[in-house]
Design a binder for these strands. Structure first.
Lengths: 198, 198
DNA sequence: CTGATTTCGGTACACATGTACCGGTCGGTC
DNA sequence: GACCGACCGGTACATGTGTACCGAAATCAG
């Protein structure tokens, strides 16, 4: 690749570039750091690029939320098929690996997601995105649980998703050196308790 | 009470007033709304009051976190003794009522707490507070579980606390009209699964 | 009371921020 | 080639922001 840097992207490609930059800034530095100028700098674009593609900062944030949700839902569905066999044999182990991989790969994305989640609690306009995101997770987990012979797949799916969120949040703040080691016994215990006939 | 408004507080009392105002603003309008001026207005004090009692905005936020943690830990310990008998007889019911009461009484406090939690994931200086807060919850829940005859009180306490956080977070964003109705079956299922001998 | 110290509140200032504006450039279409 | 709308990027501006400052008022020690 001669020139290395590539042509600066134009048109709609810039939109995505800006949204990804906004999510990065949100995850790394928090909501109060998300300004037009900071996002533009992060994206390597001039200030006017952010105001051209988004009517306001609120719109930028809402679109970023939408992008994060869509991207993650697609990723999670992909993973759920990849891990399907493994999950049937060792659900707790599969979940442990998934969470640990998330933590290892991108605490930034997780922080951005949870920041937006909390923001959705304050701004009704964001709630549909949050609902869709959560529903997608619950549906996938429910299918997995059904597959694993769960006695109460519907209730347990919501429960399990809530627990996974709680565990992830705890790991984010507590910064355990080896998340998998901390998560494995808890997930094994939970899965064992839920999968027992009842 | 003649004059109704009472004398404007002076000295250290103002500190607390400012911290409470900061938590209120954080919960209601988010991190980016927490400015010296906004907090001062919320507290009914002049701008200089915030800069006099706190060396910087970071310090103000850290102290607010400390106050929120201490207040909530004390409240939770108090409730745990009040609910002790009830918890032994009907743990799921007691937990449902506690969460529903939290949601009904102050979504603002909850949002502030979770915002600070996420902030703690980014700023190591805040982590000790978060660790203490979580540890306090885990200890209380562990005692309750032991009391209820749990087979694995240590593991299950961490698990249960994570789940409660996840469920609360979900209720905050989804704004279910009757949180108790949504939470009860999930908590009954979880408690039943965890308390069964194993 | 007197003087020292703490607390108070108004103000100042340098800088960041959201957003509007406007002349220029690009990529197609006749 | 001429044209046109979409796109770009530099700049302007009113307002918000963190923080410093300073003289006044309240509080306390002797």
């Amino acid at each position: 690749m001669p020139g290395a840097a590539g042509r600066p992207p134009r048109g709609e490609a810039r939109r995505a570039l800006i949204l990804e930059a906004a999510l990065r800034v949100l995850g790394e530095e928090g909501a109060s750091a998300v300004t037009h100028r900071r996002v533009a700098r992060e994206a390597g674009l001039p200030l006017a690029a952010t105001t051209y593609w988004f009517a306001s900062k609120d719109e930028l944030l809402a679109d970023a939320y939408r992008l994060a949700a869509d991207t993650d839902i697609a990723r999670m569905r992909r993973l759920s098929t990849e891990y399907a066999e493994r999950a049937r044999a060792d659900l707790a182990g599969a979940l442990t690996d998934l969470l640990a991989a998330d933590l290892a790969a991108s605490r930034t994305s997780l922080l951005a997601a949870y920041s937006l989640w909390i923001e959705a609690a304050r701004r009704p306009a964001l709630r549909p995105i949050e609902e869709e995101w959560t529903r997608a997770y619950v549906e996938v987990v429910e299918a997995v649980l059904r597959d694993a012979g769960s006695p109460h797949p519907a209730t347990d799916a919501e429960l399990l998703v809530a627990t996974l969120d709680g565990l992830l949040l705890a790991q984010l703040a507590l910064a355990h050196p080896d998340p998998a080691a901390a998560l494995r016994p808890q997930l094994e215990r939970l899965v064992a308790a839920l999968l027992r006939a009842g």
